[in-house]
């Protein structure tokens, strides 16, 4: 019992900060909105196709970003977890390096590359692969590219940690039992790395859903996601009621997706969760 209490004290500063600086304001906003406008703005959002489309775009961008990150991040994570190269630490640092540059700077970087007269278009034009510049800037593709770049380290690090905990002998065992590398991956490695996939996807999905800088800069003024809408309602339209309704709906949708995601993988996660082979 006393040990449990001691552990609680260790987390006390964080718990306290979260309660005072996050939960309390959120609750205040909700109560304030409900008292002032009742459910008006919630109803407005959920019945107006303009807003519903913004929600759809946001979810679609976040899902596609998460999917691409999983496909890009997993092989890299596997390599990092299994390599015996002396350069492993250097590679880790290179992967973490983007964290040192702010999202704003990185978005401007992508503008230089993706713009109509950007590096990519000039390169493709020069090669004669295209006749007119590709329209990438200010589309959902630009936003996805920016988000993938921004969030890749989260995905890689989450999965690397879990794969490092999977005994390499399990892969050898699968091979000795007749699995070619692809089957060994699907029958052993993939199911055992589900916990890492869950944590990686949870992180990047949440961060994509709530990203503001990347969609604002790479999507442009007319590209609307939930977070840019909140900003617009607060700072431009001064409609705080609608802004808080959007915030709450965004939070609810994220939670909904995380619950679905966890349920879908619950069976396997329960069996392998946190446990390592002796």
């Amino acid at each position: 019992m006393s040990q449990k209490r001691n552990l609680f004290f260790l987390s006390f500063p964080t718990t306290f900060a979260l309660l005072v600086m996050f939960a309390a304001p959120m609750l205040y906003i909700l109560i304030h909105t409900l008292r002032e406008d009742g459910l008006t703005y919630f109803v407005k959002f959920l019945t107006d196709s303009f807003y519903l489309n913004i929600l759809k775009t946001t979810v679609s961008i976040a899902l596609r970003t998460t999917g691409i990150l999983l496909l890009l991040g997993y092989p890299t994570a596997y390599f990092l977890a299994r390599t015996k190269s002396k350069l492993k630490n250097t590679m880790m640092i290179i992967i973490l390096f983007p964290f040192l540059v702010s999202a704003v700077v990185r978005s401007y970087g992508w503008m230089v590359i993706l713009g109509n007269k950007g590096l990519l278009n000039q390169f493709l034009l020069a090669l004669g692969l295209i006749d007119t510049p590709l329209k990438i800037m200010y589309t959902s593709n630009a936003v996805i590219i920016g988000l993938v770049h921004l969030l890749l380290p989260y995905m890689i690090l989450s999965i690397t940690g879990v794969i490092q905990g999977i005994d390499k002998n399990l892969e050898y065992a699968a091979a000795s039992l007749g699995c070619n590398p692809l089957r060994a991956f699907f029958k052993v490695l993939l199911p055992l790395s589900i916990p890492g996939i869950i944590s990686g996807c949870t992180l990047v999905f949440t961060l994509s859903m709530t990203a503001y800088v990347t969609p604002r800069l790479l999507g442009g003024a007319n590209f609307r996601m939930m977070s840019t809408m909140v900003f617009q309602e607060v700072n431009v339209n001064f409609n705080w009621g609608l802004a808080s309704a959007i915030s709450y709906i965004l939070m609810f949708v994220i939670l909904l997706f995380l619950v679905i995601f966890n349920f879908a993988t619950a069976g396997i996660n329960q069996r392998v969760g946190g446990q390592k082979n002796a």
Partner: peptide
């Protein structure tokens, strides 16, 4: 390795933790 039909017993057993004893053996 996967075509050799050489059985191996690992020092740490290397059992598949996500499978039951039956499914490990039937793998």
């Amino acid at each position: 390795a996967f075509k050799r039909n050489v059985g191996i017993f690992f020092q740490n057993y290397a059992l598949f933790p996500h499978l039951t004893a039956y499914d490990n053996i039937a793998f």
